[in-house]
């Protein structure tokens, strides 16, 4: 378990997911799991976010959108790929319009398995992502503030 003085904010994008992982990401924010009590917020603005949470596989049309959101985020940033589709294409990998996992477009730091990924697994993935974020701060010779 890592220690950061600042709570991570997330930006979530549904690449070409079936919705299963997306609603589980939302379920993390709601009362039973409630990650907001740790200050983890799901926000719409990529410039405010530290962690980019992607669900679903990549296709030709959303490639540009994923790249765009990633580029807009300020350094240091962490990408968490959620679910079988985001990690490898999953059950859809043989579909004609699926070109693979998220790592074919942007570098991915944490892979969360599952179809659909359970909220516990998603939270675990984000916590692992925090460790990566801390290490990235360290590389820059900065302490997160």
């Amino acid at each position: 378990m890592s220690f950061l003085p600042k709570s991570p904010w997330l930006v979530h994008y549904d690449a070409s997911s079936c919705n299963g992982c997306d609603i589980e990401v939302l379920a993390c924010l709601t009362p039973v799991y409630d990650v907001e009590r740790f200050g983890v917020l799901n926000i719409g603005n990529p410039k405010h976010a530290d962690i980019f949470v992607v669900t679903g596989s990549v296709n030709e049309q959303n490639k540009a959108v994923i790249k765009n959101i990633y580029d807009q985020m300020a350094e240091p940033k962490v990408v968490v790929a959620i679910g079988a589709c985001a990690t490898s294409g999953g059950v859809f990998r043989e579909c004609y319009n699926v070109s693979g996992g998220v790592d074919t477009v942007i570098p991915v730091d944490v892979y969360v398995p599952g179809c659909a990924a359970r909220p516990e697994a998603i939270i675990d993935g984000v916590v692992l992502g925090l460790g990566v974020l801390e290490a990235k701060y360290g590389e820059k010779g900065k302490v997160a503030s």
Partner: peptide, 30 residues
């Protein structure tokens, strides 16, 4: 943005297996 083309998968997956793929059209009405 999320077109996957999974109807076409019926040519690659047998009809029993396909039930699992079709369920993943959507995670809400699965």
């Amino acid at each position: 943005f999320i077109h996957r083309g999974l109807e076409k998968l019926v040519e690659k997956r047998d009809f029993q297996e396909m039930a699992f793929v079709i369920e993943r059209i959507c995670g809400i009405c699965s």
